[in-house]
């Protein structure tokens, strides 16, 4: 069962590089996955006035974030036994922190 908090979580990543997509490599990288606290409640009067009564709800939240990244080398295997090395990021530490909503 899920427990509160934000933790490292291994992800299998397969990379196909090259314009033709013929080079391939895979690696386990760390993501951050978890359950952080959030709440929503009626906005204070000052928020109502400042938003012209549109923001009637205030959400106070934290989300699971990557607090530290590190680079790892991924060996990509190409045709003819050619090898290419590329950098790939992996999470080193996780933390319940500021949510990012830029995409929504």
């Amino acid at each position: 069962a899920a427990v509160p908090g934000c933790y490292l979580h291994p992800l299998n990543v397969t990379v196909r590089s090259d314009h033709e997509g013929t080079c391939q490599g895979s690696l386990v990288v760390q993501a951050c996955v978890g359950h952080c606290e959030s709440s929503a409640f009626p906005s204070r009067y000052s928020v109502l006035v400042a938003s012209d009564y549109r923001r009637t709800i205030t959400s106070v939240s934290e989300c699971c974030t990557i607090s530290s990244l590190k680079k790892e080398k991924l060996q990509v295997q190409c045709p003819g036994n050619r090898r290419v090395s590329m950098d790939i990021y992996t999470a080193r530490a996780c933390q319940c922190n500021v949510c990012r909503f830029a995409r929504y």
Binding site: A2, H35, C36, S38, S39, A40, T65, I66, C99
Partner: peptide, 15 residues
């Protein structure tokens, strides 16, 4: 009645 809880959230590295 208001809302409270812990939602599943994640971040993962991208190339």
């Amino acid at each position: 009645d208001a809302c409270w809880g812990r939602c599943e959230t994640w971040e993962r590295p991208m190339l």
